[in-house]
Every structure is written in C-alpha cells, then in structure tokens.
Amino acid sequence: MTKRRNIIGKNLLDFRNARARQPEIVRSVQKDAKYTEELAEDFSDLLRLTGARSWIKYNQLCKLFAEITYHGFASSNNLQTLGEEYTGVIQVDSAYMNIPSRLLQLVSIILEFGGDALFHRVLEKLEKYIKDNEAIVPDAKQKLLKVLWIMHSSPQYIKALHKSLFYLRSSKYQISKRITGLNYVLIRHWLQPEFSLYGYKILGVISFLQVTVSLIINAYESWKDHRRKTLENMNSSSRRLVSAESNANPEKSDAPQCILCLEPRINTTLTPCGHLFCWNCILDWLDERDECPLCREKLKKSNLIPLQNYL
C-alpha cells in the first residue's frame, strides 16, 4: 500500500477533472472484495481452532470482521487499499480538496459493511415497540407495521437504483460514499487509456428498467393481497350476519351451501354452465383461474349472473 499524502502532495485542485470512472471504481471494489474474502477464510480457519461450538456460533461474523479490519487498517494508517492501488484511485472529500478525515472514512466503512444489519435491527426494535404499545389504536398500529414492512424490503431496491445511477453517471458506487460525500479520483489520469463507457450506460438503463418492473410487480401483488384480505373480511362479516339470522330464524338454517366456502350462499350468482356460488367466492376463484370450479368449463367474470331474491 502507498501513502496517500505522499502520492497527491499538497494540492488536489488538479484532480477535480480526474474523477475516477466506472471501470476503475468497479475493478477497485472487486479487487478489495477478493482480498477480504481471503482474509475472512483465514479468520474462519483460526476460529475453527477454538472448537466447533465457537466456530458455528461466530463464523458468520468472520466476513464482517475481515472487511472492517481490512478497510479500517488502510484508513487508520492513511493508506490506499490494495484495490485502490491496483487501479490507481484514491479517496478524497466532497470538495476534491483534501484527504477525508479518518472519522469520516470510519463512518463510511461502518455504513458500508454494517449499515444493513443496523438498519434492520432498528426496524425490529420499532416493530416490537409498536406491537407492545397499547396506547396505539389498532388501525394506526396496522398502518405503522405496514410502513415498517415496506422499509424492511426497501434497501434492495434502493441499492439497485443507486447502482443503475452509478452506471449512468459514474457517480458513487456505494451508498455509504454518497452519504459521507467521499469521492474517487485517478492519481495518474494522464496515463489512463480511453475506455468506451456506452456499455456501462446501457447496463444502467437495463438495471433501472429491471428495478422499475420489479417494483411494479411487487406493488401489484401487494394490491392483490390487500384486496383478497378485504374480500375475506367482507365475506366473514356477511357470514356472521347470515349465521345470526339463521339462529334467529331456524327455518333458514337449511339454506343451500356454496361449494367453495361451504357456507350458506350469499348474493347467489349463476354461471352459464348452471352452477351457483357466492358472488365473492366465485370472483376470488376467477382471480386465480378462468374456469368453473365444478365442471371446468371456461368462465369469465363478465359471464356471471347475480340472482336476486334467490337462495
């Protein structure tokens, strides 16, 4: 590793126009990942010597410890990582004027390698607090838990969108670098060969479209699930009402049953093939398949005939 301050000297103004591009940053990150994986394997082998119980309990922490040790050692000693030295890049502050402080680099390392675990841990604590807090009304509690569920699944989409932005604009590859404002510059930018970046821009567009389509599909699935639960609650309320009426009027307890819910039919609906179901039951069925539950004849929602004053 090479001393950073010895490399760049006293002035970084010349590096404002020497920002590292996608190829250098990606290769640097990949090179560092290779070395941290090897270091994690070494830590795992050492941990194995302490016994099988300890190895099983703490082996998953070896990778995190290796990443923090590897990058922390370079930052605390004001050094380039092996990946940065390999590609000829160096970290500078957001103004491209100075080497970033050790504290800022440490925050960046913690966010990069421990940010996900910390984020999910905080959400778990909030979820437990909301569930155990009796002062929160049930409706508000349900909405807050739904927001937390969305936040639990959001990091993967945020990372994918951030990466697509990096491919398009050669911005920051890691979210931790964007939060802390750290940048990469090329040390010997005048010696770097010219690369065509159109491939990275195409990859950025493809990544953005992929994330967008995935978000739309997940949103649609969530809407379908919410609609299904709403219909189930409506059916449950209707059945309780019918049950109460049946108890009040025993002669109605012999009402025909719906073959789907095995309960007295509610809002009886006729199919073209001559079968009768609850209105909501047959609609839910047709959401999954377009055929009659009994005879398997092709069936669409537009073919259903609601019957009035019919049991």
Results as ranks from 00 to 15, higher is better:
L182F: 03
N280M: 05
V147H: 01
L13V: 10
K252D: 12
Y200I: 11
A140P: 03
K300H: 02
S243T: 11
A33G: 06
L276E: 06
D139K: 15
K57T: 08
R48G: 03
K125I: 09
F73P: 02
Q30P: 06
K172S: 13
R4L: 04
Y70Q: 09
L82E: 13
N235G: 13
I136M: 04
W223Y: 07
E297K: 03
Y35G: 14
D287L: 04
T269E: 05
Q91G: 02
I99T: 08
V242W: 09
L262N: 08
S222T: 11
K229Y: 08
T36S: 04
A255F: 14
K298N: 14
L118A: 14
L197S: 12
L61C: 05
T69A: 10
D225M: 02
I217W: 10
D32Q: 11
W223M: 09
L161Q: 05
Q210L: 13
K172E: 15
L64T: 10
E297A: 11
S302I: 01
Y173G: 02
S154L: 15
E24G: 07
S238R: 14
E37T: 08
N249E: 10
I25M: 08
P100Q: 06
I136W: 02
L307A: 13
S44L: 04
A248D: 09
E84L: 00
P306W: 03
I202H: 04
L209P: 01
E297S: 09
L12S: 00
S236N: 15
E134W: 07
L304A: 11
K252H: 11
L61K: 07
G72E: 04
G83T: 13
V122Y: 04
P100C: 12
A248M: 04
S302Y: 04
T81C: 06
N77R: 09
G83L: 08
F277K: 02
K34S: 06
I68W: 07
Y310V: 15
M234H: 12
L231P: 01
T50H: 09
I25E: 14
P272N: 13
Q105A: 06
D32R: 09
L111M: 13
Q80V: 03
T268I: 03
L118R: 01
D14F: 01
E251M: 11
A255S: 15
V213T: 12
P306I: 02
A248N: 08
V213M: 10
G51T: 00
G51S: 05
N77T: 04
D93T: 01
T230R: 12
P23N: 07
G114Y: 07
A244L: 02
R227Q: 08
Y220E: 13
G9S: 01
P138L: 00
L197P: 03
G115Q: 07
E37A: 14
D45Y: 11
S28Y: 04
S222R: 06
E38L: 14
